[in-house]
């Protein structure tokens, strides 16, 4: 791997929150000595991202995903730890750094609320110092891929969620940043809009080599876009690696489901000490641990042994994998 574009080392953010007490006396007392509780939203997280990678950053609600993104984009100053992105320390070299990144928060638009979308884009053109030619070329691309043209003259507040997200994405990429951070870019979108956003991201990543770090609740985003995932929980990094590897580690089960024409002999409903279960009318299933046996051998045996009319192999859904992580952690 070449020099990473993002390097995160022992990153930690502790939020201190003050509980507000009821009543005047308590309020006065709290002026002197406030009761505070500390939450480590992100604790000791280390990873690097290579140029051109698309990495999924996943975790349950409140795991610390947004907090990480906010530190990586220079919004929050960490309690401790280091971040270098595009050669800058985000919170220290903020103005120079943010000129080289794109940011989208799905929960909240980055555009100006009450002016027409196109005015927002013109403002951004000035902010990023783009030439008229660059700007036009960019807008033409966005119009082609995202179909922005239709609502360019509406104010942001009048757009639907899907339209707004497309505008936000376009806005974040107007200045061709090599590095893009997306916090829940598909939240609340319908299936068509989601697919649209994914296609666009894929396209940008392929065409321009944009490095992307994205958080999401929709694991289909990850499956279509990211070969690598980072999982955090309660602020701690649980896993960093390939999606397949995550599946293998957490749920190394492959199921072979097959239909038979004739009822099989009860003695045959077992393979290598694993039961073959009846799961429907003439339908049976064998769950295999991939680490112990190659599915192909089992398939061969099954076809030999039974009068098979149909057969398919099922990998565990990534949802199931993640649910398992949230429940049990990673061993």
């Amino acid at each position: 791997m070449t020099e990473p574009i993002v390097r995160v080392e022992r990153l930690t953010k502790v939020f201190r929150s003050y509980r507000r007490e009821e009543g005047l006396r308590a309020a006065l007392k709290s002026l002197v000595r406030r009761k505070s509780s500390e939450v480590a939203a992100v604790a000791d997280v280390t990873f690097t991202i290579g140029r051109g990678e698309m990495v999924g950053y996943i975790g349950a609600n409140g795991a610390g995903k947004s907090t990480t993104i906010k530190m990586l984009t220079g919004i929050l100053t960490p309690t401790s730890g280091d971040v270098v992105g595009n050669g800058f320390v985000p919170w220290r070299d903020r103005t120079r750094y943010v000129a080289t990144i794109g940011v989208v928060f799905g929960q909240r638009t980055q555009l100006w609320w009450d002016i027409a979308v196109v005015e927002s884009f013109r403002l951004l053109k000035e902010i990023y110092g783009l030439s008229e030619a660059e700007y036009r070329e960019r807008m033409a691309l966005f119009d082609k891929v995202l179909g922005l043209g239709a609502y360019l003259h509406q104010p942001v507040r009048k757009l639907s969620l899907g339209e707004r997200m497309r505008c936000d994405l376009a806005a974040s990429l107007l200045h061709r940043p090599p590095l893009l951070f997306l916090d829940e870019p598909t939240i609340g979108l319908d299936i068509v809009a989601k697919a649209n956003v994914r296609e666009f991201l894929e396209e940008i990543n392929r065409q321009e080599g944009t490095t992307v770090l994205l958080t999401t609740h929709d694991l289909a985003d990850i499956e279509t876009l990211c070969r690598r995932v980072i999982v955090i929980d309660h602020g701690k990094l649980l896993f960093d690696g390939a999606l397949d590897e995550l599946r293998d580690r957490i749920l190394p089960i492959t199921s072979i489901v097959f239909d038979v024409k004739r009822a099989p002999d009860a003695r045959d409903l077992e393979w290598n000490g694993r039961p073959i279960r009846e799961v429907g009318l003439h339908r049976y299933r064998l769950d295999l641990d991939r680490r112990e046996a190659a599915p192909a051998t089992a398939v061969k045996e099954i076809v030999n042994r039974f009068d098979v009319s149909d057969l398919k192999i099922e990998e565990p859904e990534i949802e199931a994998v993640v649910k398992r992580i949230y429940q049990e952690g990673i061993s």
């Binding site: 919004i75 903020r94 943010v98 909240r108």
Partner: peptide
């Protein structure tokens, strides 16, 4: 309202 987030990710003081 947290609108300052947006301000901070723009390359202007």
């Amino acid at each position: 309202e947290g609108r300052f987030d947006r301000v901070l990710v723009r390359p202007v003081n």
